[in-house]
Design a binder for these strands. Structure first.
Lengths: 240, 240
DNA sequence: GAGTGGTCTAGACCACGAA
DNA sequence: TCGTGGTCTAGACCACTCG
């Protein structure tokens, strides 16, 4: 782990523990340099990271300050779907995964377009749901180019496709392009998700890229609106 | 403008113009250093920025590569709501803004909590909609602490509250914490938005922070699901 | 082994804020 | 005026990829 990451961890912990309180000024950059025996640019990386995680605000010429955020809302998972409410469901590990379909298909135009495939390309296609204590948490539709992955096994779709890929191919995912929408469930989804026709779903459409620039994964996931939220921190605002 | 930003702009333009094609390798870091007469760390900042904007993938030990993205989908606005479809509506400038309510209120618990206010605090409260060619684009609910802004004018709510604040107060917004959801419209919203009861809405709940760490704005905006999407790029994926 | 990007150093200069 | 963070330099070392 790079040096700056471990400093980030220390400071973030201090904030979560309440050792650094809202509106407290962090030690100055120079002080932190001495304290951790690192150079100025390293501390700069640390501050960038802390700001992107929503811990601090930086005021040029003045100092870096701990944000006044409601307890428990900082340090949580960002840039991903989380299941809301006290529903202590960890979508990451706990839920059972039920595969509805697992085939090789000629994908529709949108998938071809977003994965940058040729007209006559084929992809793996998986549809599946996660289930926790008899309630269905989501429905997912996944597409993987056969060009890249010549062989994907059904068992991997029931656990972690990404893990299986990591073990069997030498590829490293880099970034994901995401689009979020509010949509109506299809008739099929009404049935599978156990929602009613008028219930809204939160949809996330995600294209994954490898570190050489190739799209390698197309994913659409839909969650009942009362279960899922997407949280993020950045410097863009809606125009107001 | 810092030096690295202008280099970002040049390279991003080259990619958008197609001068650099998908899967092309960018000049190496060393070459870029010579080409732009800058140091290595500066180029590092450039690459960070290009990657966060979704232009390139970086492969350690190999090179930086232009992502294969469908034409027109890169370089667009990120981390904010955009109005989908060919609907060439620019929410930023074109639409008329109609204010429904403009008062000072004792906000509810959630607003108090997220703005970090005392129980007995007051806020400005604005509800308004944007309208373009007879169709209603959104409905917004905004709260500003009276503690921070002693005076907000109605006219500003009809144009740009943020602009008005910038002209009348010495505050600089820093970052925004956002939560996205899919929700049902209330009866009132059905009426105001001209949607039907079962149509899903995309909701964005946003808390804005100043550069000294103070929350200064609470905003909930709701958009008809068929009009609005939220787009972003990052290195987090849904677990798959 | 040669070439790549990622991290880091020890400085410097600048823009800005606070008093 | 002085202390702050933001940018930038000219190097260095390391981890990694690829032929």
């Amino acid at each position: 782990m790079p040096k700056y990451k471990s400093i980030v961890k220390e400071l973030a912990d201090a904030i979560r523990r309440g050792e650094l309180q809202p509106y407290d000024q962090l030690p100055t950059v120079v002080e932190l340099c001495e304290q951790y025996h690192v150079s100025r640019s390293t501390i700069e990386l640390v501050m960038d990271d802390l700001e992107r995680q929503g811990y601090v605000s930086r005021k040029r010429g003045s100092g870096v300050y701990v944000k006044k955020v409601p307890k428990g809302t900082v340090g949580g998972p960002l840039n991903t779907i989380t299941l809301s409410d006290g529903a202590n469901v960890d979508i990451q590990k706990n839920p059972e995964c039920r595969v509805h379909e697992f085939t090789i298909v000629k994908p529709d135009d949108r998938v071809i377009h977003l994965l940058g495939l040729h007209e006559h390309s084929f992809t793996y296609y998986v549809s599946r749901s996660h289930i926790y204590e008899d309630s269905v948490l989501d429905i997912q539709y996944l597409y993987y180019p056969v060009e890249i992955f010549r062989d994907i096994r059904l068992t991997s779709a029931e656990t972690s496709i990404r893990e299986w890929i990591a073990e069997n191919y030498e590829v490293t995912p880099d970034t994901y392009h995401k689009t979020l929408r509010a949509v109506c469930p299809t008739d099929k989804e009404v049935e599978l998700l156990g929602v009613t026709k008028g219930d809204p779903l939160l949809e996330i459409e995600q294209v994954g890229y490898l570190d050489d620039g190739r799209p390698f994964e197309y994913l659409v996931a839909r969650f009942p609106g009362d279960l899922a939220v997407y949280q993020t921190v950045d410097s863009e605002s809606l125009p107001v």
